[in-house]
Nucleic acid binder design. Structure first.
Lengths: 119, 119
DNA sequence: CGTGTTGTCAACCAAATGGTTGACAACAGG
DNA sequence: CCTGTTGTCAACCATTTGGTTGACAACACG
C-alpha cells in the first residue's frame, strides 16, 4: 500500500462524491453528518470517503467533544498543479519545436516514405 | 459506465505507470511496444493502460501500417487545472475572510461557548 | 445514571482494476 | 506465399473499491 502521494491525490479526486465534498469544504469546515446529508448514502460510506481524502492529505480533522470537524488543506493541490503544468509546458514546447521544424522545410518530405516512381 | 470526464482524467492519472507514459509522450509520440519497453509488464497490459488514457481523452492514436502511434492531447489538462484552480482560489479567499474576521475582534469570543454561571 | 448524538470499526458483498496467458488479425518484406 | 512484427481481443484471476448493515465507543445533557 505504499502508493506515492501524487497517486493518492489523483485517486482521491477521481470520485465525484469526494470532489463535491472538497468543493463544499472550500466554503466552510463541516462535520461528517453535515457532509453526509446531501448524498444518498450511509454516514459510514462518507466516513470512508473522508479517510481517503485524509490519506491523500487533502483534509485534516480535529477533535471537539464527540464531533470531528473536517478541514480542507489546499496546499496539496499544488502537488498536482506542479505535475500537470510541468508536462503541459513540455508538450507545448515540443509543439513549438515541431512547428519550427516544419517551417525550415517548405515542402520536401524529410524522410521520403516512398520515392515516387509509381507507374 | 457513464463516468464524467473529470473523473476519467483524474482516475487515468492516478496510476504511476500511466503518469510515466504521459510524461514520456510529452517528449515524442510512440508506439505501444516502445511505450511498453521500460516496464516489467506484458504489452497487453500497456495496451489496456492506453485504452484508459484514450478514454480520458489524454491520448489519440492514428494508423500507419500495422503500427498505432500514440499522441498526447494536452488540452485535457486544462479541465483539471480549471477545477483545481477554482477551488484552490475559493479556499484561499475563505482563508482571507477568516483572517479579516479575526482582525475585527481583537480578543473577545464572538459566540460565547459557555456563559459561565456554572456553579 | 440513563439516553441521544456523533462517528468509527468490522464483516460482508458486488463491481471495477490491473495483471496474466493464448489466439488471432493485419500488414511488410523476404 | 510464408514469416515475423505489431497490436488487439477474450477469458481468467487476485486485489481494491464503494457500498451495505450491525455493534460499539465517547461524549453532552436531562
Amino acid at each position: 500500500m505504499p502508493a506515492d502521494p501524487l497517486s493518492k491525490v489523483f485517486s482521491a479526486l477521481a470520485d465525484p462524491t469526494r470532489r463535491d465534498m472538497v468543493a463544499r469544504l472550500t466554503r466552510a469546515d463541516a462535520t461528517v453528518n453535515e457532509l453526509a446529508e446531501p448524498y444518498d448514502v450511509s454516514v459510514q460510506a462518507v466516513s470512508k470517503h473522508l479517510k481517503v481524502l485524509e490519506g491523500a492529505g487533502l483534509v485534516t480533522r480535529s477533535r471537539e467533544a464527540q464531533r470531528r470537524p473536517v478541514h480542507l488543506e489546499a496546499e496539496v493541490f499544488d502537488l498536482m498543479t506542479k505535475w500537470i503544468e510541468r508536462y503541459r509546458r513540455q508538450a507545448e514546447e515540443r509543439y513549438q519545436r515541431l512547428d519550427a521544424l516544419l517551417a525550415t522545410m517548405p515542402d520536401g518530405d524529410p524522410e521520403p516514405p516512398d520515392t515516387g516512381e509509381k507507374p
